[in-house]
Amino acid sequence: MVLSQKLHEAFKGTVERITSPRTVSAFKEKGVLSVNEFIIAGDNLVSKCPTWSWESGEPSKRKPYLPAEKQFLITRNVPCLRRAASVEEEYEAAGGEVLLDNEDDDGWLATHGKPRETKQDEDENLPSMENLEISKQSGIQSIPSYFGGDEEEDIPDMAEFNDPDNLIETDPATLQSTYLVAHEPDDDIILRTRTYDVSITYDKYYQTPRVWLTGYDESRMLLKPELVLEDVSQDHARKTVTIEDHPHLPGKHASVHPCRHGAVMKKIIDVLMSRGVEPEVDKYLFLFLKFMASVIPTIEYDYTMDFDLGSSSNS
C-alpha cells in the first residue's frame, strides 16, 4: 500500500471511530445514505433481486452500528464473460465513445466517466484476451495458485499426483469435461468465463455504499486482485479501483473507492428530480448499481430496474 493511502486509511479509521453514524437523511441533498437508509435500500434490493443476500461476515469485523445479520450485501458466482479492457479496445476501434454512449438517453453517467486521453502505456501491461489465450497453455500445466508467482517451485505439479490410488472411476454416467462437451467448437468462450462475488458494504466515512470484487478464474480458483483490474473499466483501474482489506471478509479485494460516490449519486438524483421524478431512498442501490456498471461493465450482476424509480411502489 502506498504511504499516503495508508495514512488516509488511518485517518479515516479514526474519524469513523469517533463520529457517530449518520442518522439524518441527506440523500437528496448530498447523495449519501444514513445507516438506516442503507438497510432499507438493501432490503429492497434483496427482495427485488433475490440473487443478492445480506450476510454477517467475520464476527470479529462486525460493525456495531449495523444489525448483526445485515452487515453487508453479496451476490455470488456472477459471470464475467469478457475482459472489460478488451471490450473497450474493440469499442474504441469501432469509433465509439467510452462510457458516454450508454444506451441511456439522458447520459448522466457521462459526468463521471471521461473519454480516455491516452491508452498506449496502460494497454501494454494489461493482458488482453489474446494474451490470456497464450498464457492459457502454460497455465494448464500447473495447479493454479493464488499469489503463487514467486513461489512457483513450491507448488507441486498436478501430474505428480495423478492417481497413485487407483481413483480411475470408469463411470459411464459421469459427463466428461463439462465445458468442452457443452460448447464445442468454441469452447474458448467458456474457458474464459470468470466469476465474481460482488459485495456492497456501508462506508461510514463517506456515508455511501462501496462495492468489492472477489474474482475466480475459469477453474474457480481465486483470482489475484491484480487480475481483477482487467475486468474494470480502464478509466478506473488503479485509480478509483484499488486493492484493499475487505471490511467484513478476510483477504485483499478490489474495491471501487467511494470518495466520489456521494457526488455522482447527487448528480443522478438531481437529473431525476429535474425530470419531475421524486427519487425514493429505497431505490438508491438500484441507481448506485447502475452507476457501478460503468466501472465494471462486463460483470453481469443483477440490478433489474423494471419499475418506476421515484413514485412509491407496492413493495
Binding site: Y146, N162, I168, S219, G251
Partner: peptide, 18 residues
C-alpha cells in the same frame, strides 16, 4: 472425486501474501 481441469488431481492454493 472432483476433476481439476478435466483431470483428477489435488489442488493447491498459496495465501502467503494475505
Amino acid at each position: 472425486w472432483e476433476l481439476n481441469r478435466s483431470k483428477k488431481g489435488s489442488r493447491c492454493i498459496s495465501l502467503a501474501k494475505t
